[in-house]
Write a protein that binds this DNA or RNA. Sequence first.
DNA 1: AACTCGGGGCA
DNA 2: TGCCCAGAGTT
Length: 222
Amino acid sequence: MLTKKEIRYCLDEIARMFPDAQCELNHRNPFELLIAVVLSAQCTDVLVNKVTKTLFEKYKTPEDYLNVPLEELQQDIRSIGLWRNKSKNIQKLCKMLIEKYDGEVPADRDLLMELPGVGRKTANVVASVAFNIPAIAVDTHVERVSKRLGICRWKDSVLQVEETLMKKVPKEEWGITHHRLIFFGRYHCKAQNPNCLECPLLSLCREGKKRTKGLERSNETK
DNA sequence: AACTCGGGGCA
DNA sequence: TGCCCAGAGTT
């Protein structure tokens, strides 16, 4: 397990690797952020950005999403997977926002999680990014990176990863830490064939050391 | 804990 | 072609 100081070093190095790790999501208002994150489940950020670009020109408010038939909304997001569920969830979600929260996005993680299509990860992203509520969203990237580096244990659950990160990272940096780890996981510490040999964190990384040893051996046997 | 949803991207 | 992807909901 890495110490706080080692984690500090990792996060600083990652910040240097991705100086513009400001997700586009940061620039949106809470409502658009919520829609974007709901859409992003199980598909890549690039694909979602392609859809939201035109989507947000057409739909500005929860009412806008309810003023079109479901079939029309489905067509508008059809290029991403799970569009059947997602379009239904978005209309239900908008209805709930109007009926329960006067059309506003609630600034509360538990209330967010009651919305259809919003789970723990989405609620944490919206809460921390849009409302500056202390929370760390753990997605597959954050989980994988944390486990490989040795920030947490391999067998830890998502909740345990979340707890560990909150314990070992200063509260003011929770939001940006989430984004940095995602960028690092998406573009460098990839799920398949991570390029450990060109990784600035190799000297600290539990999994990286294991993998590079394997590489040396396989090169020798060639 | 395991299963399902799902089209696009990429090797 | 086959495999994977910013998860969530159900069983």
